[in-house]
Amino acid sequence: MTAAPTSVEPRLLLSAPTRGDRIFRGILSGSASLTMVILALIGLYLLSGALPELRADGLSFFTSFRWTELGPFGIGAVLYWTVTIALISLTIALPVSISLALAITQYASARVAAVLTILIDLLAALPSLIFGIWGLIFLQPRLVPVSEWLSQHLGFIPIFNVHGTNFKSSAFIAGVVSSLMIMPIITSIAREVFSRSPQGEVEAAYALGATRWSVIKTVVLPFGRGGIVGGAMLGLGRALGETIVVVLIVSPTFLISPRILESGANSVAALIALRIGEAHGIAVNALMAAGLTLFLVTLLVNMIASAIVSRSRSGAGVEL
């Protein structure tokens, strides 16, 4: 039914808020706006810090592979290794997170699921420093044999090839450690979307004689696909910005190579962390430019992630 013809118009319901209420509203929206201002300021300050360097080196800042005391600077290799480490950790974290989320929503009893959820929240709460020190001292010596084995047997694949014998401080090891850190966030989003699987379809599949895995494959996973992709993007964003683990584990390099098992990698965040203390003059501007790049990349990745999750059938209303 459409609205009645113009003779009747809804009354405007106005109520004059009290003075206290107006002040209160003002404080609330002021605070809310302040968060927007902060984000804008981050971008602006980094941009103004970055401009001198970007003027000096231009586009070659993003494409060249060099970093000297007083310039010229180029973060091409650093960007490459940042993305490489993030992709390695995502490659490990994504399947693990999906199966954790399946374990919680589809396999575990309510009590086990609750315990698992708490443990994963705890994993998310641990500082990256703890992962870093553990990864460096405990895990690295135990992963090196795996690297050796991979390079011996699968060395014909370029990424598993290794020149020399140094398997420590590699992008692979840093990626494994940071995969532990992005696992919780991917798991929690996957869990959320899996738990919303349409019960009618699940029951229909079971009633046709489907096994649990067939139900997961035909109903749960397709339904949760948007959430999984969005969660993976979100994890990728976290991995791109991970600092301490990379600083502690990899030995920095400004050269590009496909050999992820070999010593030597880098990341934008690690570059900044390692150099900001002693940087002077134009070097500070170069670090600002690197920081701006990282800021924009993570912002973009996060935006895409939210968009994917909220547009998907399963993800509507899921809090990231």
């Binding site: 968060t35 927007m36 902060i38 984000l39 300021l41 981050i42 300050y45 980094l46 979100l234 964003g237 976290r238 791109l240 910005g241 991970e242 600092t243 965040a269 900044i272 962390a273 900001i276 670090l287 600002m288 920081g291 990282l294 800021f295 993570t298 912002l299 990745v301 996060n302 935006m303 939210s306 990231l320």
Partner: peptide
């Protein structure tokens, strides 16, 4: 949206800012 975006800002970037 801004709060979501902020939660993804790497801490090194916050420090640099």
């Amino acid at each position: 949206t801004v709060i979501d975006a902020m939660s993804g800002v790497p801490s090194i970037v916050a420090g640099l800012f």
